[in-house]
Amino acid sequence: MTGVAPRLGTLLVLLTGTALVSVSIGAARIPVLEIIPALLGQIEGTSRSILVHLRLPRVVLAIGVGGALALAGTTFQALLRNPLAEPYVLGISGGAAVGAVGVLVAGLGARLPWAVPLGAFVGALLAMFLVLRVARAAGGSRLDSRVLILAGVVVGAFFNAVILLLLSIADVESFRSAIFWMMGNLSGATWSGNALLALYILPGTALLLALARPFDLLARGEDVAFHLGVRVERTKLLAYVVASLLVAAAVAFAGVIGFVGLIVPHALRLLWGPGHRLLLPASFLAGAAFLLMADTVARVVIAPAELPTGVITALAGVPLFVFLLVRRGVQ
C-alpha cells in the first residue's frame, strides 16, 4: 500500500461503495440489486422516476462537484503555498453568490430556473477576472501569490457587502431561497446540467492532473522550479484559470459548498504526503466520495425535509480534520 495505484484503487472502491449506498437510500428505498433492472426499465413506477430523474443525477453531480472542489483546493494550495488556500480564495464564491442572489431577489428564480446557475457562473467568472486584474495591476508582470490572496480577500469582502445589500431588500420568499442557495445544496441536479458541468470538469481535471510535476517543483520555491525548467508564470496562470473555471462550474450547479476543498487535500497530505502525482487524482476521488457521503446524510437525516449539503460538509469535515491534525501532532 505504498504506491500510487493501490491507493487510488482504494479510493475508487470507497467512492463506488458510497455511490451504491447513496443511490439506494432516500425517501424511497431502492435495494442495490434492483438498481440495474430499474435503469433498464424492468421496474416501473415512482421508484424508477425518483432513481432516474432525481437520485442518479444528484449522485453524479455530487461526484463532479466534490471532485472539482477538492482538486481545485489542492491546486490553489500548491500555487499559493498557503495552507489556508481553498477553492474560493480568489473571490469566486462571493461573485457567484452575487449573481445567484441577484437573480433570486429580482424574482426571476420561479420563471427562469436556469437563470440562477447562469447568474452564479457569470458572477464567478467576473470575480476571477477582477482578482487576476487587481493582482496583475499591483504585482507587475509576475503573479505574486501574496498579492493574489489579498486581492481575493478584498474582492470577496466587497461582494459580501453586495450580498448583504441584496438580502436586506429581498422579500421573505426570495430571502429563503437565497440563504438556502448560499448554504450549498445539490437538489437542482439534472442530466442536462451534469452534461454541461462535464464539459468543464473532464478537460479541466485532465489538465490539472498533467501539472503534477510542475506543482512538485513549485513546492520547493518558484526560483528552484524556474531553474529546473518550469515555465513558472505560464504554469501558474494556466492553473489559476483552469481551477477557477472548475470551481465556477461547480458553484453554478451546487451553490457554495465549503470545506471540501480545504479539508480533503490537507487530510490526504497528512495521510499520504505531499507528492502531487498521488495527491491530485486522490483529492478528486476523495473529494467526490466525501461530498457524496455528506449529501446522502443531508438527504436522509431529517427526511422528509432536507438539510443544505454545505452544513454537513462543515459539521462532519471539521472534526475529522482536527482528529487527523492532532494525531499527526502526537506522532
Partner: peptide, 21 residues
C-alpha cells in the same frame, strides 16, 4: 398529502413529493 407531517410548515424534499405523487 402532507397532513401527517411533523411540523406546521415543513420543508420537503423533491424525492418525498414524487413518492407521495
Amino acid at each position: 398529502v402532507f397532513h401527517d407531517a411533523r411540523s406546521s410548515w415543513p420543508q420537503i424534499s423533491m424525492e418525498e413529493i414524487v413518492r407521495r405523487d
